[in-house]
Design a protein around this nucleic acid. Structure first.
Length: 874
RNA sequence: GCCCCGGUGGCGAAAUCGGUAGACGCAACGGACUUAAAAUCCGUCGGCUGCAAGGCUGUGCCGGUUCGAGUCCGGCCCGGGGCACCA
């Protein structure tokens, strides 16, 4: 949003500054910034070397989808990464800071459908636009390593490793129930279904039976869980989310033998999975999933079962259905024997709340100690028998009412387990079941295999052919990449690749007979699971240049949104481990350090008709204490919606370009990093840019000022030197601690100090030399201009980070507040590091303190070195 | 329902080891400069109270630990995020 009054007259041409001399042109970023970007490009200073004596540092931000326009959320994200990249480079690291494009996906298809453009051309245009915008931000990126996932040179290598994983058995095809998005007309992974709706379209997801491609991420479930422990530079929150997602549980897989007249398919009894084998004597029924194979057999024979299953399938995933969550059951009339007492039989039900794809798809119900089972038992009049006694309860009177008892306690009513604590009873039950040959201890994960196929035209083709004679055959590596055709028809929903008139037709690589190509493409999360490997050498013949990868991996610092905590980060970890086991790289984990930055949010605006509006089209006013919004062009009333993450779909995006046009790129970078800590969400306002702009001008004014030659005052010189070293320490520590907002605050302070020291001399020179380098990660163009003005050799971008002298960074004298009984009553001055005795002496000799202590008896004096004094007196 | 994370001036926030609460910035107000405005510079800026020095109070609420609590502990309220028939 253009700031008031700045469009007609630009701030840097509006008049001379009055500091130190009559007329001085103000710092003009429009002229300065492009010049330094050219200088960096000419010197190629941001190119990383795959062979180097320096220690390596690999820093990257999550690559963007090329939507066509950069917004301030991107700016903030990439500015953060650039601060780290420039800081580490200055500290002597060989820094790899690459960029690329997550370029497959639906928006290109939507654009093709709406405007009849070619998705490849549309995407390429967007990439070109956004690359220019990114380059304008002055990011220290190594553009020689750029990758785009829609480039055959990239996805062809992806097909190559995909086939290797297939041959290894990590990829397989299976018929199963899938989540079908009826709007996008594609299959979604479980992770991509949120509240029963497609993560992208928001449409209610249906369940369909289809043959699908999967990756065996569950083979790695245990390692993915265990090695989370090695990720000490990941946020705990993300590790916790992944841990919950993997959902490891230990329990018992146990078979209930069928009782009496075993029905067809039912001879082997029913196998259930439980994490509560200690409650087996509280069992009251068995429940099968509506999708259980036995249910299907029963449904084939009995129409009432089929009707019941149909009822369960209807909805089931819809939001409303989940919320009401009514338990539904059907009594099959069949029964099984209790494994621990074969004379005891239990009825077999089919229940809607039993999931087929978790455990065995069948459970035993223990209503007293499981809320779902209790709800079910109450509804259908099944017995409720408690077997875990709460610590203070009386076995004679303890009853379970409306709430199941799920806490710990002592087992009773349970024969050989009586008297045991819950954990001991679980072990005893597992032993017993194993002894009987009816069960074994089992570990089960919530994590499911990853469904990777999408019925989309704009994605990486799955490189296989279907031959009537040979079945599913891999395309030979020499024939890769399997490229997308030109001229796909996106005017109708569905898979444009499938509809293409000729692309499908091919020859079987094995028998040479006629065959068809697979028309499913890979989930775009496959594309983003290895791009950090490809950056290392995007021209390599092999998908991954192993030698270079062994040097660079793992990524030292990855920066991105918390919204990828589970999906992208889990897939990328899995693919890394799979490729490692294929011998393609050596790293166990892709990202040693992870930082999840906050989102940039903005209010949303819509027309009465529901159409989204951009913030720039809307004028906000205050009428009667209420904020009102009107369409700038027509005055039409506009609905102010929620504050949400900036996204193209809701059109609540603010471009950094306007801000950069008016104030320059450096001010824009400072603005997005100021004021709020990087991990916090921020609601966008342009207010901070004025402060950033002033900082730029004030920094420049120090370099541009004519030197004031005055005799150096030794005391003032020391004071300035102390301020310099204190600033170096503070900024360094703040960057290392990811407190960029604090680092910028310290720059403001340091500039404030410099204004008070216009004299020349070495101390000022030292200060200015340090300041340029401290400013450099945040406002790199300004830093170069200052550096050049100082006459320093070379580029500031390649200068060493300033070192501080720890002695100078500490004050030699401290002001210590003095409290009496915890209330501040004065302060004293003491040498830094003064002993308790020395400080106490000064305190007691202070007349003001003495006055405060009149009539009181000092009981105790607490001296915290260099910080505070507290006198306890009565 | 369960699991996380937050709540500090008019606003964004700082205080990261239990030790001066509000650094730094924005806005506002007062002043300087200017024919004037903008820009720039200097200053004030949690609340109550006082002529002043100062005093009292204050980090969502209630209680606790401590010489000392924004920070630690217990209970609650509010906001945000994640998971949600996972047996």
């Amino acid at each position: 949003m253009p700031a008031r009054g700045l469009l007609s007259s630009s701030p840097w041409t509006s008049g001379p500054s009055r500091r130190n001399k009559a007329a001085m042109p103000r710092y003009n970023p429009r002229e300065v910034e492009p010049r330094w970007r050219e200088a960096w490009a000419r010197a190629d200073v941001f190119r990383a070397e795959n062979v180097s004596d320096k220690p390596k540092y690999y820093v990257m931000e999550m690559f963007p989808y090329p939507s066509g326009k950069l917004h301030v959320g991107h700016t903030r994200n990439y500015a953060m990464g650039d601060v780290v990249a420039r800081f580490k480079r200055a500290q002597g690291f060989n820094v790899l800071h690459p960029m690329g494009w997550d370029a497959f996906g639906l928006p290109a298809e939507n654009a093709a459908a709406e405007r009849g453009v070619d998705p490849a051309a549309w995407t390429q245009d967007n990439i070109d636009t956004m690359r220019a915008e990114l380059q304008r931000l002055g990011l220290s990126l190594d553009w020689s390593r750029e990758v785009a996932t829609c480039d055959p040179a990239y996805y062809g290598k992806q097909q190559a490793w995909f086939l290797r994983l297939w041959k290894k058995g990590l990829v397989y095809r299976k018929e199963g129930l899938v989540n079908w998005d009826p709007v996008d007309m594609t299959v979604l992974a479980n992770e991509q279904v949120i509240d029963g709706r497609g993560w992208r379209s928001g449409a209610v997801v249906e369940r369909r039976k289809l043959t699908q491609w999967f990756m065996r991420i569950t083979d790695y479930a245990d390692e993915l869980l265990e090695s989370l422990k090695t990720l000490d530079r990941w946020p705990d929150k993300v590790k916790l989310m992944q841990e919950n997602w993997i959902g490891k549980s230990r329990g018992l897989r146990l078979t209930f033998p069928s009782a009496g007249d075993a029905a067809l398919g039912f001879e082997d009894g029913i196998t259930v999975y439980t994490t509560r084998p200690d409650t087996l004597f509280g069992a009251s029924f068995i429940a099968l999933s509506p999708d259980h194979p036995l249910t299907e057999i029963l449904a084939a024979r009995d129409g009432r079962v089929a009707d019941f299953v149909a009822r369960c399938r209807k909805g089931g995933v819809s939001e409303a259905e989940i919320e009401t969550a009514e338990k539904l059951g059907f009594d099959t009339g069949l029964s099984v024997e209790h494994p621990f007492d074969r004379t005891w039989t239990l009825p077999v039900w089919i229940a809607n709340f039993v999931l087929m794809d978790y455990g065995t798809g069948a459970i035993f119900g223990c209503p007293a100690h499981d809320q779902r089972d209790l709800d079910f038992a109450r509804k259908y009049g099944l017995p409720v028998k408690p077997v875990v006694l709460p610590p203070d309860a009386d076995p004679a009177t303890f009853r379970v009412g409306a709430e199941a008892y799920v806490e710990g306690g002592r087992i009773y009513n349970s024969r050989f387990m009586d008297g045991l604590e819950v954990e001991a009873a679980k072990a005893a039950a597992i032993d017993k079941a194993e002894g009987l040959g009816l069960g074994e201890g089992a570990t089960v994960y919530r994590l499911r295999d990853w469904g990777i196929a999408r019925q989309r035209g704009w994605g990486c083709p799955i490189p296989v052919t279907h031959c009537a004679k040979c079945g599913v055959v891999a395309v030979p590596e020499k024939d890769l990449p399997v490229k997308l055709p030109e001229g796909m028809d996106f005017s109708r929903p569905g898979n444009a690749l499938e509809r293409h008139p000729t692309w499908k037709e091919t020859r079987c690589p094995e028998c040479g007979g006629p065959a068809t190509r697979e028309t499913d493409t890979l989930d775009t999360f496959v594309d983003s699971s290895w791009y950090f490997d490809r950056y290392i050498n995007p021209q390599a013949d092999e998908p991954i240049d192993k030698e270079a990868a062994d040097y660079w991996l793992p990524v030292d610092q990855y920066i991105g949104g918390i919204e990828h905590a589970v999906l992208h980060l889990l897939y990328a970890r899995f693919i890394t481990k799979a490729l490692r086991d294929e011998g393609m790289l050596s790293a166990d984990e892709p990202f040693a350090g992870l930082f999840t930055q906050g989102m940039v949010t903005h209010e949303t605006y819509r027309r009465q008709s529901g159409e989204w509006l951009e913030p720039g089209e809307v004028e906000i006013s205050s009428e009667g204490g209420h904020r009102r919004a009107r369409l700038r062009a027509t005055g039409e009333a506009v609905v102010i919606g929620d504050v949400e993450k900036m996204s193209k779909s809701k059109r609540n995006v603010v471009s950094p370009a306007d801000m950069a046009d008016t104030y320059g790129v450096d001010a824009a970078r400072l603005c997005v990093l100021s004021d709020s800590p990087p991990e916090r969400d921020v609601q966008w306002t342009a207010a901070g840019v004025e402060g950033a702009w002033r900082l730029v001008q004030r920094v420049w004014a120090e370099y541009d000022a004519e030197p004031v030659i005055e005799p150096l005052d030794v005391k003032r010189e020391l004071e300035l030197r102390r301020a310099t070293h204190r600033a170096i320490k503070a900024v360094t520590d703040a960057i290392e601690g990811w407190r960029f907002n604090s680092a910028i605050a310290r720059l403001h302070e340091f500039v404030g100090v410099l204004r008070r020291f216009p004299e020349g001399g070495l101390a000022r020179r030292e200060a200015l030399s340090a300041l340029a380098r401290l400013v450099s990660p945040f406002a790199p163009h300004l830093a170069e201009e200052c550096w050049a003005r100082l006459g320093e050799p070379g580029l500031c971008a390649t200068a060493e980070w300033p070192q501080y002298d720890a002695k100078l960074a500490e004050d030699e004298e401290r002001v210590l507040p003095v409290q009496v009984n915890g209330k501040r009553r004065g302060e004293i001055r003491a040498a830094a590091g003064a002993s308790e005795a020395e400080v106490e002496k000064i305190v007691m000799g202070d007349p003001e303190i003495a006055r405060r202590l009149e009539g009181l008896q000092v009981r105790k004096v607490i001296v915290v070195k260099d910080r505070i004094v507290n006198i306890v007196a009565a």
